[in-house]
Nucleic acid binder design. Structure first.
Length: 312
DNA sequence: GTCCCGCGCA
DNA sequence: TGCGCGGGAC
């Protein structure tokens, strides 16, 4: 997609109507998207689902809402406890940032989640996506939400392209998304969540269910014969990467911590290096990722030279 | 083996 | 603007 504003070739009203109808009968029943969830609950749910599929998030979200129903509750928790409860949701730095976010919110006058986009963006772990999701879903502000699903659906339907060329939305994409927003904030929320759900369930990245698509007749990409994008889709490696090695060290420390025996929550450097060592890995990988975990604040070295979760 | 996801910082 | 950052489901 180039930077010139694109005319929305299919009729926006028809696409909106069809997708909102589709959503009413096909939406997943997600507790974190239920009526009456607090701004804090929505914030926690959105941060958890930043890199993790919704179905996997739900049990963790419920648990977190029981343990820490307000920002003040999470702000009072230790980093170690937060990392343990984060479990294997992935990217544990997100859990530490969420705690920092809770501390920042608790320190605000009134101690509540802000409803303003810029203020939300200034919080740890909250970027453009999460801020716009909160403004729309929770506060019903008139704002476009541009997550990867919505970007893909809009590009296909209105620009005839398979997927975004860049990892962040262009001006043209923003202009297109803005031009499609209903006037009413509550309707915007409904539209945003409908498109997002449609992208997650039907108009997927790799194998879209075009045969079952309620807007196939409107879709510019389908009318163009669904041409493949010029850009290559590159999937992240996992096996053997630093990320996998980091995950092993954190998993060991979470297990130890969850035992509840303070004498066993810490491990020696040698034990940590052993956990970090992957088969056939570069011998420098284990010490390197241990350093990185320390730098990221995901582990600490005590005066006893033992390694533990922060605050444990 | 492939899919799926946004934030923070250089 | 590009890279680093997890891990379960399929």
């Amino acid at each position: 997609m180039n930077d010139s504003p694109l005319p929305a070739s299919p009729a926006p009203d028809e696409v909106r109507g069809a997708l909102v109808r589709w959503f009413r009968t096909n939406r997943r029943d997600l507790p974190m998207r239920a009526e009456g969830v607090s701004p804090w609950g929505t914030l926690v749910g959105e941060v958890m689902s930043q890199q993790t599929p919704m179905p996997r998030v739900q049990p963790f979200w419920r648990r977190w809402m029981e343990l820490w129903p307000t920002p003040q509750d999470l702000a009072a928790a230790s980093p170690a406890e937060v990392l343990v409860e984060w479990g294997a949701l992935g990217y544990p730095s997100r859990a530490l940032r969420l705690r920092e976010c809770a501390i920042a919110i608790a320190g605000r006058p009134g101690g509540r989640v802000p409803a303003d986009y810029e203020e939300l963006c200034s919080l740890p772990g909250i970027g453009p996506y999460t801020a716009s999701a909160l403004v729309s879903f929770q506060f019903h502000g008139r704002i476009a939400v541009l997550d990867t699903n919505i970007r893909r659906v809009l590009l296909r339907v209105f620009a005839g392209e398979e997927r975004p060329a860049s990892s962040s939305p262009s001006k043209a994409e923003r202009a297109l998304a803005d031009s499609l927003l209903p006037e009413d904030g509550a309707e915007c929320a409904q539209w945003n969540v409908a498109v997002m759900e449609f992208g997650a369930l039907v108009c997927t990245q790799k194998s879209p269910s075009c045969a079952d698509c309620p807007i196939a007749e409107h879709c510019a990409w389908t009318r163009a014969g669904r041409p493949a994008s010029a850009s290559k889709l590159r999937t992240q490696a996992w096996k053997g990467t630093d990320r996998q090695a980091r995950g092993r060290v954190l998993a060991l420390l979470r297990e130890r911590h969850a035992l509840g025996d303070p004498s066993r929550t810490a491990i020696t450097r040698a034990r940590a290096l052993e956990a970090a060592r992957l088969p056939d890995a570069d011998p420098e990988q284990a010490p390197r990722i241990l350093d990185a975990l320390l730098t990221d604040g995901l582990v600490v070295v005590g005066e006893d030279s033992l390694i533990r979760l922060p605050g444990a």
